[in-house]
């Protein structure tokens, strides 16, 4: 059964890897990580504006502040590696290489969207990219990610699945069942806990009696690792180890990334709220995963300030182009309402 507690549970050290560690990551990868984060940030900020302006229907759960987690994990994955996501799923798909036009078209509920306008923000998916869906049910993803991992092992591929979930979802029974099965069968899976400190609007200390979700890993017989989820290189390094371990057939890891949601659970606002202080938000914003990373890249001589600004500008252009495409694309025809409830048999019947 492997080596439980290989990384320790509660005693696992929080990551404190400095710039010297970053030298082990290639310059190319550092820029890749930066680019992934910027794409998520700008995608989400623009989506938030559109939502507030009433141009996008329904609810949006924005990923701003947590970009280092998706970027650091997804940089290790290929298309055939699967992920399950959460209600806060745009960032995961952007980081996995999702097409921005199809993503925005879906947020607008248009025919050209990833889900032909039938899923929306909470069900955005790209199975060809191994993105098995954002999920409107907290805790809905872990059992499905276990199924994908089972499938990878059964089919003898070298692929892994990564299950993104929050501190809130770690209280769902599905997480417990999934973690137990994954460890029991030594499945190639990484449970990536995005601990942003809140289950919806309830602070972590009011929804669970532990501080570190990673504490739970040992009880399933898997290592639990804690990293600074605002530090993309820390996430990248730790995810790399966990994913490599899974690929080697050594079983699952619970990787807890301590992060923070700059906006609200749903929508944009985020400040002036009863459930957290503005001071707390500002403190976390000082640790903005993109701004702090850009400072480090600048110090390392990898990315000058004007170069970073040019990247933001280019991504913003790409995002706005995707928005224009989406908003100008047609809505689904009402005749498709009953299509795709079932997969039709080859003969056309069901």
């Amino acid at each position: 059964m492997g080596e439980p507690h290989a990384y320790g549970g509660a005693s696992a050290p929080a990551s404190d890897w400095g710039d010297d560690r970053m030298t082990e990551i290639t310059r190319e990868m550092l820029l890749d990580l930066h680019q992934r984060m910027v794409r998520i940030r700008i995608f989400e900020e623009e989506a938030g504006r559109l939502s507030e302006a009433g141009r996008i229907p329904g609810a949006l759960h924005l990923y701003v502040g947590e970009e280092a987690v998706a970027a650091g994990v997804m940089a290790h994955l290929e298309a055939a590696d699967q992920i399950t996501s959460t209600h806060r799923g745009h960032g995961h798909l952007v980081a996995k290489g999702g097409d921005l036009r199809q993503m925005y078209a879906e947020l607008f509920g248009r025919e050209a969207g990833y889900c032909k306008g039938k899923g929306g923000s909470m069900h955005i998916a790209d199975l060809d990219l191994g993105m098995l869906g954002a999920n409107g049910i907290v805790g809905g993803g872990p059992p499905i990610a276990v199924g994908a991992a089972f499938s990878n092992k059964y089919r003898k591929t070298q692929n892994v699945s990564c299950c993104f979930f929050g501190d809130g979802a770690s209280n769902e029974g599905t997480f417990h069942e999934a973690a137990n099965i994954a460890a029991l069968y030594r499945l190639p899976i990484v449970f990536v806990c995005e601990n942003n400190g809140f289950g919806e609007f309830t602070r972590q200390d009011r929804h669970q009696a532990i501080q570190d979700v990673a504490d739970r890993a040992g009880s399933y017989g898997m290592p639990g690792v804690i990293v600074d989820g605002m530090d993309v290189t820390a996430v990248y390094e730790a995810a790399g180890e966990a994913i490599a371990r899974a690929r080697r057939g050594e079983g699952p890891t619970l990787l807890e990334c301590k992060t923070y949601r700059f906006f609200d659970h749903v929508g944009v606002r985020g400040m002036g709220m009863v459930y957290r202080t503005d001071d707390e938000v500002l403190q976390w914003k000082r640790r903005d995963p993109i701004a702090t990373f850009e400072e480090r890249l600048q110090e390392m001589g990898i990315l000058a300030a004007d170069q970073a600004a040019a990247i933001h500008e280019r991504v913003l252009f790409e995002v706005r182009e995707a928005i224009a495409f989406a908003e100008n694309s047609p809505p689904p025809d009402p005749s498709v309402l009953l299509e795709d409830v079932y997969t039709l048999a080859a003969g056309g019947g069901r």
């Binding site: 199924g147 069942e177 137990n180």
Partner: peptide, 18 residues
């Protein structure tokens, strides 16, 4: 294990991946 949600999810994830 006796874990119906886990078992069902195992089936779903496996079915969705071939």
């Amino acid at each position: 294990p006796i874990a119906e949600a886990g078992i069902m999810g195992l089936g779903i994830g496996a079915a969705a991946t071939g």
